[in-house]
Nucleic acid binder design. Structure first.
Lengths: 205, 205
DNA sequence: AAATTAATCTAATCTTGATTCAATTATAGA
DNA sequence: TCTATAATTGAATCAAGATTAGATTAATTT
């Protein structure tokens, strides 16, 4: 086996992953630079070599998590499958992403609020970046609204209030990242299937 | 009009309500004693006359919120209505509680995690109190499981994985407290109706 | 291998927020 | 009114955690 020194210099990716874990576990405010540093065997001070500050680091985590899901949702949207099939697959990859990648959960559920709280503060560039994150967050939610809307128009789904239905769906998903435990009774795939069944059923005439 | 001095001594209730607001707005860690005190025109120091410390105060908020929903759910459970009717009503009072009382949202969604993080620390009495809160939280979730289970057994609902369905339902509900705005397009009652429709539909054969 | 740049570290600084204390003011009852 | 208790406060204490500064070590380049 090729040698793989245990203590090597760490890159941003490593830090992001570590930060995502701590973030999802403890939440924005309760996450300390020291905690994150410890996960990658560094001191808090060292993190500042890689990221401007705590806000920038954590926002990077949220961005990565959000982009990951979006990148998995878009191909499904672009496919020519039927709306119900598209929605089923979207729910699938979303839940799987949530259960496999802590950054996704962090991005979706909790830290939004901390981000909004810290809004306004910081440099113009930072404010812009946060705005952009929120815009992406909206775009993400819109992907769901679009499929649902399309399905309703095509009479594949019953008439529902699209924004509310989307929120309902997202809330259910987000919550998975809170209660899901890798060693639980069901794995991500199984949970995804059940939740997809639930919402597809809810959309039937 | 009877005189009503603006500056009167404040009671625990006032503080709990103020704290619930700040808590839901900013989250456990980001909520400062000063913030809470400001809402009731007191200084941070004064709060210690009413509550042992920050943890005790915030836990009291969570307890109050949780007990409020439970107290509204239990009568419905005890009624002899059909399962689907019971579930519909439960969803109704739950959502309404969430939109009308910030403490409820706080209790359900966010602060649980902060509470778990602080677990183990504190006096034996504090640990016991936190455990009790979690037990009540489980009891609450069980109310939903019970109705769903009963409905499945009575063939009123299709066969679903009860724990997962309950989590799905609760996630959707909890999320309402995050996005609901009193001045939004729909009021709590309307949202409740739509969400009840969604989940009842999802349980149909 | 000298020079340069990247990655880390330790120690110091600064700020914020919880908590405590002693003193003050308000209220209720005798 | 006098007194005991309840509320409240400003000032002081303490600790945690983010950030910075300067020095050191590792890795790369030439």
């Amino acid at each position: 086996m090729a040698r793989k020194p245990a203590d090597q210099s760490v890159n941003q990716q490593d830090i992001l992953i570590a930060a995502a874990d701590v973030l999802q576990r403890n939440g924005y405010e309760a996450t300390t630079m020291k905690d994150i540093a410890a996960e990658v065997n560094l001191t808090a001070a060292s993190l500042y070599h890689h990221f401007k500050n705590k806000d920038a680091l954590l926002l990077a985590v949220l961005e990565a998590g959000l982009e990951l899901v979006i990148s998995r949702l878009e191909p499904i949207m672009r496919s020519d499958k039927s709306c119900d099939q598209q929605l089923r697959e979207m729910i699938g990859v979303h839940i799987i992403s949530l259960t496999e990648n802590t950054a996704v959960g962090a991005a979706m559920v909790f830290e939004i609020r901390s981000l909004m709280a810290s809004n306004g503060s910081g440099s113009a560039a930072e404010v812009t970046r946060r705005k952009k994150f929120f815009a992406r967050r909206d775009y993400f939610e819109n992907l769901y609204r679009q499929v649902i809307q399309k399905g309703v128009e095509q009479r594949i789904f019953r008439a529902v209030d699209v924004p509310i239905f989307a929120k309902t769906l997202l809330g259910a998903h987000n919550w998975v990242s809170v209660w899901y435990k890798p060693d639980g009774r069901l794995n991500g795939q199984q949970i995804a299937t059940m939740m997809a069944d639930t919402f597809l059923q809810a959309l039937k005439f």
